[in-house]
């Protein structure tokens, strides 16, 4: 009974976070900030929803599969967002609101090549 209510709370919080991430995708001013909004839905939101669902499943293979889904999401999401931001940077997308003494676009030429 307590576990049921705990899982309801966790899943509701996760769904709330996912909607907030969706709103953040529209409220954020530029691409690099939207990346952070997506980061919220990739880490804590998926953790809360999958963890809450694993309470419903109890100790079974379904719990292991939920954990594996979460592990795959956790391992692939930083790689995907790094390749996104890296190719946006190489393409020449400038972030807004960057200080004057920040590394300019000239620095982006790689030193070793």
């Amino acid at each position: 009974m307590i576990l049921d209510w705990l899982s309801y709370t966790l899943i509701t919080l996760g769904a709330l976070l996912s909607v907030i991430g969706g709103i953040g995708l529209h409220r954020m001013p530029d691409f690099y900030c939207r990346l952070h909004a997506v980061g919220v839905t990739d880490t804590l939101c998926s953790f809360l929803i999958l963890f809450g669902l694993s309470f419903q499943a109890g100790f079974s293979l379904a719990t292991v599969k939920l954990f594996l889904i979460f592990a795959f999401l956790l391992f692939t999401s930083p790689t995907a967002s790094f390749s996104l931001s890296h190719s946006a940077w190489k393409w020449g997308l400038t972030p807004i609101g960057v200080r004057e003494d920040a590394p300019s676009m000239k620095i982006k030429v790689r030193e070793e090549s």
Partner: peptide
């Protein structure tokens, strides 16, 4: 930009995974 679109599609895919997990239950 095209990167915004790919980012949105990435998030769409993540949410689809969660939706399939909910549908399973």
């Amino acid at each position: 930009t095209v990167f915004d679109r790919i980012l949105a599609v990435n998030m769409f895919g993540t949410k689809a995974v969660l939706l399939v997990a909910v549908v399973a239950f």
